[in-house]
């Protein structure tokens, strides 16, 4: 029995009592995306459940990061992108011309592969989002900063040096700061693009624990190339290959009894 399967068994035991109630918050319908003439996403249909962790796995270049960046339309920063199909969020297609990007990105937050704190103080990093959304009062900002840092488990480590540069934090702390920064704008959905790939094992563990806590309040989509991580922390898993969703199911099912041969080959390490 592989390590992954052991992890899955453990988790099944833990979550037996928890009846997973399915309510989707984001649903992709017939989503296609091209970079120039290269099609990166092919007819993606996915229902992302609310207040759960959805993991997206697959070999590099399979389109998993592209899909993630499509959900908050960050992918459009690449000038040659063409998209058709829908991603529905609160019953609205996010590609609709009426959609306000600022609002979309405020409710769909994002954490990047490499921690990207701004060259500002810890306080100003967290307060950046609330400030651009019009909160000016110091007292309010202070509260938001404290709450966000507590929620990301960083408060006790940094409460005495909020005025110091965020660039002085360790890699793991920086990533949790970026999560806190994201929480400060009160998102509903958090997109995480391989958030632990630049971290050491200990920091990775902390971030994973944090993700587990966050799903109480937030819906999380996490892209990871680490299958054990997907197995450990996610409720649902989508397996991407060559821009297509090969299989999307409960994480337990994907890792213990995949339907598709290609999924099985991937999770057992036959390619990747």
């Amino acid at each position: 029995m592989s390590a992954i399967q052991t992890v899955v068994k453990e988790k099944q035991k833990l979550s037996l009592d928890k009846d997973v109630q399915e309510e989707s918050i984001i649903s992709a319908k017939g989503l296609n995306l091209w970079y120039g003439n290269d099609q990166a996403l092919k007819n993606i249909n996915l229902e992302i459940p609310e207040k759960q962790v959805t993991a997206i796995i697959g070999p590099s270049g399979c389109g998993k990061s592209t899909f993630l960046k499509t959900v908050n339309r960050m992918v459009e920063l690449v000038p040659i992108v063409k998209i058709n199909g829908n991603i529905d969020y609160h019953g609205v297609n996010i590609f609709d011309s009426k959609v306000n990007l600022v609002e979309l990105r405020s409710s769909v937050g994002m954490v990047f592969q490499k921690p990207n704190p701004f060259p500002k103080s810890i306080f100003d990093n967290i307060a950046f989002g609330p400030r651009v959304h019009g909160i000016k009062k110091k007292a309010e900002l202070t509260k938001i900063v404290e709450k966000s840092l507590r929620a990301s488990g960083l408060w006790d480590e940094v409460k005495d040096r909020l005025g110091e540069s965020a660039l002085g934090l360790s890699g793991g702390q920086q990533q949790r700061l970026c999560i806190a920064r994201c929480l400060a704008v009160e998102p509903e959905v958090i997109l995480m693009d391989e958030p632990t790939s630049a971290l050491d094992p200990k920091s990775t563990l902390k971030v994973e624990e944090l993700i587990q806590e966050l799903k109480e309040k937030y819906s999380i989509i996490i892209v990871t190339h680490n299958m054990q991580q997907a197995a450990r922390i996610s409720d649902k898993t989508a397996f991407f290959l060559n821009g297509e969703v090969v299989e999307f199911d409960n994480t337990d099912k994907i890792f213990s009894n995949p339907t598709d041969k290609r999924t099985e080959d991937y999770i057992t390490g036959r390619f990747g």
Binding site: M74, E103, R105, G109, M110, N116, P117, F128, G129, V132
Partner: peptide
Amino acid sequence: PTSFREGGLALGAT
């Protein structure tokens, strides 16, 4: 770094 721009936009800044 591009990551500053991405970080800002992803937080809903214009």
